[in-house]
């Protein structure tokens, strides 16, 4: 790669290193199957199996 592309590469991957994990966490946290119940009693119920 030439210098300009090396700089672009570094910029792109630094941005992806920040954005992609955040996007994954945000998506999965907001997905119906992956989100924890918002109300504490429901979490406790889930933990105790009750």
């Amino acid at each position: 790669m030439i210098r300009r592309q090396r700089r672009a590469h570094a910029l792109i991957w630094t941005a992806l290193a920040v954005a992609l994990p955040l996007a994954l966490v945000a998506i999965l946290a907001n997905a119906p199957g992956g989100a924890l119940p918002e109300r504490a009693p429901e979490r406790l119920d889930a933990e105790t199996g009750g």
Binding site: L16, L20, A23, L24, I27, L28, A31, P32, G33, G34
Partner: peptide, 16 residues
């Protein structure tokens, strides 16, 4: 990056 979002928003978000 688009493929990662494709899989995450698709099969993973629907309980993969």
């Amino acid at each position: 990056a688009a493929v990662v979002l494709h899989v995450t928003l698709g099969p993973l978000a629907s309980g993969g």
